[in-house]
Every structure is written in C-alpha cells, then in structure tokens.
Design a protein around this nucleic acid. Sequence first.
DNA 1: GTAAAATTACCGTTATAGCAGTAAAATATG
DNA 2: CATATTTTACTGCTATAACGGTAATTTTAC
Lengths: 78, 78
Amino acid sequence: MTSKEIGKIVKFHRKQSGLTQKQLADLAGIGKSVVFDIEKGKETVQLNSLLKVFSVLNIRIDLKSPIIHLIEKDNEES
Amino acid sequence: MTSKEIGKIVKFHRKQSGLTQKQLADLAGIGKSVVFDIEKGKETVQLNSLLKVFSVLNIRIDLKSPIIHLIEKDNEES
DNA sequence: GTAAAATTACCGTTATAGCAGTAAAATATG
DNA sequence: CATATTTTACTGCTATAACGGTAATTTTAC
C-alpha cells in the first residue's frame, strides 16, 4: 500500500459521501490543505491526520503479516 | 485502529525479527527516535516513516470500508 | 550478584508539516 | 454559453517532528 493508493481511496470515499475537501477537513478537524495533500498521495502527512480522515469516512485499517495472529490481546479491564 | 495499537504491532514484529530499535531504524532509513515514538503510539509520526517500518517488517496495510470494493483499479500499463 | 546491551527519556538544532489566505484552474450547474 | 462551486496550487508564518547525542533506566546474559 502506497500513499498514492491511500490518496485514491480517500478521494473515492469522500466523493461517495458527497463531501467537498473543505467539509471533510472541517469534520476531521484538520486543514483543507492536508486533505488535498492526502488525496494527492503526499507521503509526509502525519498519521494523526490520516486517522481522523479515515474515521470520518468510515475506513478501517487492517495490518496483515504472516505472524500477526501471534499477538495476544491483553486489553481486558480487571 | 489507533496509533497505540499500531505501536504494539510494530514492536511485536520487530522483536520477532530479532532487531533492536536502532537496527530497525537503520534498515528503514529513519531515526531511532522515530522507531521509539512509533512503538510508543505517537500519533504525529509521518506516514512516510510508518510505511518504511512496515516494509522492513513485512506488514501490509489493508483499508476496509463498506464501499471500498467499488473502486476500480485502473493501474494497467498500455 | 555484575556487566553488557537495549530501551526509554531528554535535549538543542534543523527541517518541514500544518495552516489560512488567496488565486488560478478545473469541474459542475443552470 | 455563463457563472458558481470545487479543486489545485502557491505563499508566508508558526508549530512541531525528525534527528543524533547523551544519560538514565530497564532488560538480558553471564
């Protein structure tokens, strides 16, 4: 997955949601320039900004690897 | 997926690979502090840095959404 | 236990991302 | 077509991430 692919996916979802870049930016709480940059495939955007945009657009991140299932989830409350 | 979860996943994969933070940083071409920050769950790291680390550790990103399958892949060469 | 290695934390400096404003170009709408 | 909207592009300014150095703490190995 490259930043350019991520940009395409973001743009597609924004369009499908009927949002302008400015609207998405406001909903995500970031600047319009950053939305533009993300869609353009800029590599140096902050994870921060990307996660906010994903959240607004209902995009989930899955990380995959040959060994990822070995991680134990120890997040239970006592 | 939060940055903290990402951090845990990165740390787990680095350990499994038998790498120190410094070694991973060098392989990824980023500073050791950034590896430390990623594993700590820092939200403001650059996508850049994260993608390099993922690449070294063989972690793939999948983006999921209810409508993502509607995107057409038009990346064929002529 | 001690020593070595690794991780975590802090620092000052430098590089640069985020930002809002604006303008130009592209796209959509009547 | 004309015109409104949106997107793209550019520009300083400000905030801050990246970086390497170092020190303190923690973990590992003997």
